[in-house]
Design a binder for these strands. Structure first.
Lengths: 329, 329
DNA sequence: TTGAAAGCGCTAACAG
DNA sequence: CTGTTAGCGCTTTCAA
């Protein structure tokens, strides 16, 4: 754990330059010396010091990922995708939980920049002015996941939220549902809130349904808010036939609330989620949900980060994944 | 993003040594120069290069976490705990998904050691001889989570698996259950398999119940295996009153299978899980489960890593978290 | 209170 | 094919 290149060089009777050439697989050494050096390396248990290497090469083979939350399924599946691809390409990933906290986010950004990461993946949060400026100043690649920015030229990987919500509601409407509750992100959320509400209104309009405020409640994408949102919908609307939640987790919250009321799903009320995380698979009944390819988005983001330019944004395909929580009327 | 300490020094009209003293909050400079230097830093947007710092100080303020899986709730809650505490203490965390693959694990170990991480948290997997030797050679702190080693002197943070299983079965037996199915990890798993089976047998013996092979099936802690394990139990035992699964995820699998058979839970069959992750909270019905403080274990592991010695292992308390999936007979 | 200079472990010209 | 040497950006004696 402490042999250095000079120790290897001494032991093998060559210069550090030669050792360097050999461990970096460059040209310019005989097979003979190579063998001798490799033996010295083995005997000394030499491991190149990536810190020293990083200093001279200005490369760290490390990237940073900023997420608003670490314990949601969405996050863990995204991280899984990112980590898999990063490792495949020879990169390590440092995870940072911003907790949706501005100071914390900027602090992480500072740390990552001091550590000279070669790229940053920024996920599921709005790029505030200060974040964007900071990242721009870093002049390293940045890729946005499940978010976008109109102020900053960062490429993104996401699904078209408006279109996805539209697809979802159209699906429910086509199944004959007319009284559809919507547990949405708040309308001041420019990523997963407002656009999906737009999609909702668009579908409604297309089916000549008027917009009914009572059918729209707001949550924070987590379980509890799904349950409490469902409670409000339940109390205010006695003739609901379906509910769409803007995350699988909120859909599960709704499921739990309805189950408590003795409601049969999908017999009495249909429930639909958004994301298609493992949560949807594991729900009872298994959740019909708007599929977005979360892990794949992580993989793509990593790809973009390393070889994309600012114009390489990707809109991923989405679709309705049918399971057992929605019935046709 | 490219100003270096010498630029700051030049701009402030001092030496790099003085700038270094100031940014490191050492002593030996006047308030006056401090102000001048800080202004230069601000104007240049200078950020200390952590790579260079790491080279001279031999400190990277980074640790590595090795996990067999990134997408389980268990993992994400553990990571959450670790990351929170790491950040609080000024450390970054590199995550590594070993995928239960030996080569991959050793490769990660090599990468982490080359990157000179200051510690390693190794979670939820048996410490094979080669892993242990490698980590020992690194001579940096290693902490085990939800595992232990009899060959290597690494401290661990975990619950007593045998005792926890015993507690769980005793709980079910006390509720009047006698025909209890067990979806377990395999008996060649020295961490979450064999010990829990021992606890199972101990509880059985205490209640004068004979061990019935038909009641014991094996899974891999994931959803699917819970469902298929439940199917076997279901086919082989017509008089089951309860099922205990060695992870919440497998319990959810069992739940889904039983639901498909029209079984009422806990009316017809009680189901109990292990872990008390968010999955248990979100299940329908909410899962009664053996609680282990997953996030807290992450926090403790991080603490141990930084200030423990090899004799500081921690056995965390466990208990039965009662919810709605078990009934009294 | 300050600066000069050596060196952390490695890479990359440039010679030979 | 191989060695010498000059840094990479920073910290840290040692002197002043």
């Amino acid at each position: 754990m402490s042999a250095k290149i000079s120790d290897v060089a001494k032991k093998a009777g060559v210069s550090t330059a030669t050792v360097s050439r050999i461990i970096n697989n460059l040209s310019g050494f005989s097979e003979e010396t190579k063998i001798r050096v490799e033996e010295a390396i083995r005997e000394l248990g030499y491991k190149p010091n990536a810190v020293a290497r990083g200093l001279v090469s200005a490369r760290t083979h490390t990237i940073g990922v900023l997420l608003p939350c670490l314990s949601s399924r969405y996050s863990s599946q995204l991280i899984h995708g990112i980590e898999t691809e990063a490792h495949r390409r020879g990169y390590s990933v440092i995870i940072c939980n911003t907790d949706r906290n501005g100071e914390r986010t900027l602090e992480y950004l500072r740390i990552l920049s001091e550590k000279r990461v070669e790229g940053i993946i920024f996920a599921s949060e709005w790029v505030k002015e200060e974040y964007g400026r900071y990242m721009l100043d870093l002049s390293i690649p940045v890729v946005l996941v499940s978010t976008y920015s109109d102020h900053f030229p960062f490429p993104y990987v996401r699904v078209d939220d408006k279109q996805a919500a539209y697809t979802s509601f159209k699906y429910l409407l086509d199944k004959g549902h007319r009284k559809i509750g919507f547990i949405s992100g708040t309308s001041d959320d420019p990523v997963a809130g407002a656009p999906r509400i737009e999609g909702y209104r668009k579908a409604l309009a297309e089916y000549d349904q008027s917009f009914d405020e009572k059918l729209l409640v707001y949550g924070d994408f987590h379980f509890e808010s799904g349950a409490s949102g469902m409670e409000v919908l339940w109390n205010e609307n006695k003739d609901l036939t379906a509910v769409f939640a803007s995350s699988d987790e909120m859909a599960l919250g709704a499921l739990t609330f309805l189950h408590g009321k003795g409601v049969n799903i999908p017999g009495d009320i249909s429930v639909m989620g958004y994301d298609d995380t493992l949560d949807a698979v594991m729900a009872v009944p298994a959740l019909t949900t708007l599929h977005q390819p979360v892990e794949e988005m992580g993989i793509c983001a990593m790809g973009l980060l390393l070889e994309g330019d600012d114009s390489n944004s990707i809109i991923m395909k989405h679709w309705v994944k049918e399971r057992n929580s929605v019935r046709e009327l």
